[in-house]
């Protein structure tokens, strides 16, 4: 029993208290770049989650065999291998998504989120904890990408996942699809998250 609630806490941590995008503020490059559409945000989130999960498993299995001095180059090669597999898989089966994500798929390799997890967690804990942590962080990252992407897509194009959501004479805010929109939306969302967090803490103290 004791083991399962450690796993559960590892998993839950990634979703809210240590959500990579809104709390740890790491892995921002793809977060801003591909979230003009929810479909792309979802694809990038899942690609990152898969790479994180797969490389966490491999690295935590071989954590004792990789000498300390060459750990960063070795981890990066393992991550780069999985990212290449994901990129080839996307090109073969989802050509339009792969074209939309374009140059940001290989950037998953240098995403501070993944290398940070390997170094801080996967390379020091047994496999099952690494899996729970990777799943938590991966899903947390995907959810935060989709939250940001839905705000930008609904305001920018009036659609959600391609279906028209806002009717009537709504003039879409084109700025939401351009870089300034990404920066402004994420900045305001961070503020919102802090406000929610303070409210939750305040109510907890009252109890």
């Amino acid at each position: 029993m004791q083991r399962t609630n450690i796993l559960f806490s590892d998993f839950i941590k990634g979703l809210w208290q240590q959500n990579p995008t809104f709390r740890l503020l790491i892995g921002m490059c793809p977060t801003l770049a591909v979230t003009s559409q929810v479909q792309n945000g979802l694809a990038m989130g899942l690609a990152t989650a898969f790479t994180l999960l797969a490389s966490s498993i491999i690295i935590s299995i071989f954590r004792n065999f990789i000498p300390r001095e060459v750990r960063i180059p070795s981890y990066i090669v393992i991550i780069a291998t999985f990212v290449t597999i994901v990129s080839l898989f996307l090109k073969a089966n989802f050509p339009e998504v792969s074209k939309d994500l374009g140059p940001y798929v290989p950037l998953i390799i240098v995403n501070c989120l993944i290398l940070g997890r390997q170094e801080a967690f996967a390379s020091k804990n047994p496999v099952y904890r690494a899996i729970a942590d990777a799943l938590g962080m991966g899903i947390g990252f995907t959810l935060s990408l989709m939250v940001l992407a839905s705000v930008r897509e609904v305001l920018g194009m009036g659609t959600l996942l391609g279906h028209q959501v806002i009717f009537g004479n709504f003039r879409p805010w084109v700025i939401m699809l351009t870089p300034p929109g990404a920066f402004l939306t994420l900045g305001l969302l961070l503020g919102l998250v802090n406000i929610i967090d303070k409210a939750v803490k305040a109510r907890k103290e009252k109890k």
Binding site: I66, V70, S74, I85
Partner: peptide, 13 residues
């Protein structure tokens, strides 16, 4: 170890 990782990754890719 570096060569082993590189070898495995090259074959898989």
């Amino acid at each position: 170890s570096l060569c082993l990782i590189a070898l495995i990754s090259a074959v898989i890719l």
